[in-house]
Design a binder for these strands. Structure first.
Lengths: 249, 249
DNA sequence: TCCTCCAATCTTGTATGGTAGATGCATGCG
DNA sequence: CGCATGCATCTACCATACAAGATTGGAGGA
């Protein structure tokens, strides 16, 4: 292996790898999207990990990735460090680097964090809904119904994320939402495994209940609806563990 | 500059730098505490930043730090990347690296995250207090009173952190507490600036109220007490901004 | 005096070679 | 046949050299 690598452009990754087109998930925390090679490697690897092109347990190496991407080991190494801090890779010094298996306990705790924050967000929004809060949420739900009817689960996922992000913005804590993005990636990996089975109709109904409670200024009702909405993911987790036992530790 | 570096031991940092003794803050997210050079540099730099030995706005460079620590640029560079991801450094490509100034908005959002999670924690603990919850909390408060009487603000800070961490453990989400440790560093920098003026007696009183509500199983009361306890930091922030305007952006 | 331009000199980014540690397999011994 | 030992080969870690963008200062002209 590892024959004839240098000189190839970065695009070479499109070979045996990723099949993503262009504008997928909302640009993550990265400010200047593609400044350095290292950043591009980070983005490409993260997408490949979240979309399960690189599967939990896969062993990778600096030389390996560097060869595939046509760059030296240095930027790859820096990318590994970033991804390891985000919990997607596990670097075992002098040994190997592996795509981290999904920790059920970690997912549970990430969900706890998300639920804590989202409940607090929905409280604030319901207590002090802005003038356009109701209309904005209503419009988002309409788009989700369109995506659901077209069975575009990819777009539905994006819109679902946008729904929750919008709530954060309405609460005036959009920046806080970005801060928890890293932890949310653990949940995203699980979610990707359940893309097909996700019952989008149920989710849309729950979104409607939440939006209605917000519009009515019903703090307790909004909180309860949000908790119910988030709790549904708990069932998906245990089912997913049963379906893909090798991906969990 | 940059003359005669190699061969020096790592301890050389003790020269013009850090004056920390030994067992200060509870070992952060790092698993194997001191495996590689890069990790040691990370730890040393982080402590220096949180304790304001390196002040917000200070310009540092890879060569500079590498010279001080007697290592090459490579491990320092990796340390920079880690610290930049934790929001303590700002790497401006091809330009310079500076100790990030404290963002008041960022602090506010970090506090929002912390309050959201701590409120959820205190709810769970108050709703289902373990058999030894009351006694553990009571003992911690007693230690805090000792530290306060001795005017050992350092130790008081450590105990205060332990109090909140213990609550997380009692709620069964200690791992989640570690996950938010990174964001909490922003708050720690502000807190360090207010070490002298911190009214420990007030904090102890609030801790007592929280512990009492937990012991009584009073969920609403515990939540209210926790919110009040955390809200007090809001006043400190604006006062700190006025006292150290150069440290904020 | 003020503005423009250029070059010395910073900075971080990238490439590459060498090193120490860990793993796995083959070999040799009991 | 089972087990210990040593070597080939892998890995990430670290050091060094080079490259390219950005800043700063001064020289030169209007």
């Amino acid at each position: 292996m590892d024959g004839g690598n240098s000189g190839e452009a970065f695009k070479r990754v499109s070979g045996p790898w990723s099949g993503r087109e262009s504008g997928q998930v909302a640009a993550s925390v990265l400010e200047a999207s593609e400044e350095t090679m290292a950043m591009r490697v980070v983005g490409a690897l993260r997408d490949d990990i979240v979309t399960m092109v690189l599967k939990p347990g896969d062993v990778i190496s600096e030389s390996d990735i560097a060869g595939r991407y046509g760059v030296s080991r240095q930027p790859v190494r820096e990318a590994f460090i970033r991804l390891a801090q985000q919990g997607l890779l596990l670097i075992r010094p002098k040994r190997a680097t592996v795509v981290k298996k999904i920790s059920p306990e970690g997912v549970r705790q990430s969900r706890f964090i998300r639920e804590s924050i989202e409940v607090e967000i929905i409280r604030r929004v319901a207590a002090h809904p802005g003038p356009d809060a109701a209309s904005v949420l209503k419009e988002l739900i309409a788009e989700q119904e369109t995506a659901s009817a077209a069975e575009d689960s990819r777009r539905f996922h994006t819109l679902d994320e946008l729904f929750h992000r919008t709530l954060a913005r309405l609460a005036g804590v959009e920046y806080a939402w970005q801060l928890i993005d890293d932890h949310k990636m653990q949940l995203d990996r699980v979610r990707y495994l359940t893309l097909g089975v996700s019952s989008s109709q149920v989710a849309i109904g729950e979104h409607k209940i939440i939006a209605a409670a917000v519009a009515a200024g019903d703090v307790a009702g909004a909180e309860a609806a949000m908790r119910a909405h988030l709790a549904r993911a708990e069932l998906l987790l245990s089912q997913t563990i049963a379906d893909f036992p090798d991906y969990f530790e």
